[in-house]
Amino acid sequence: MRTILKLGKQEHRFIDRISELSGENVYSCYQCGRCSAGCPMAFEMDILPNQLIRLVQLGEEEALIASKTLFICASCFTCQSRCPKGINIANVAEAIRYLAEPKGKDHFGPDEVPAELADELP
């Protein structure tokens, strides 16, 4: 696949929107990877948390919205608690999910939870 890096208006708008929604400075990530190293669900993810932030930095909206990772993040905040730059990555993931929703990308809703589970699930 040929990748063309372009940081035009559209990309910047996307990055700014993510920053605004999440309240996080995505530029400050220096890609140490600690979020991914500690993520309990990383083994299920198609892109790791550090890659998620990287793709935001690159303005790759489509790749992000298409990723499974968005809905694997359990919002456990382990990444946030250890990030050397204090980025709340779960917040960033939530912001991307927020943008993904109107584009028809969503996870399953409460009505899809099997009845025997719904009875017990908190």
Binding site: P40, M41, E44, I72, S75, T78, V113, L117
Partner: peptide, 16 residues
Amino acid sequence: KQECCGSYLSVSLPDA
């Protein structure tokens, strides 16, 4: 003791 239990992924990704 401070690791995540899997949260609601027990619904969407029960194995994980």
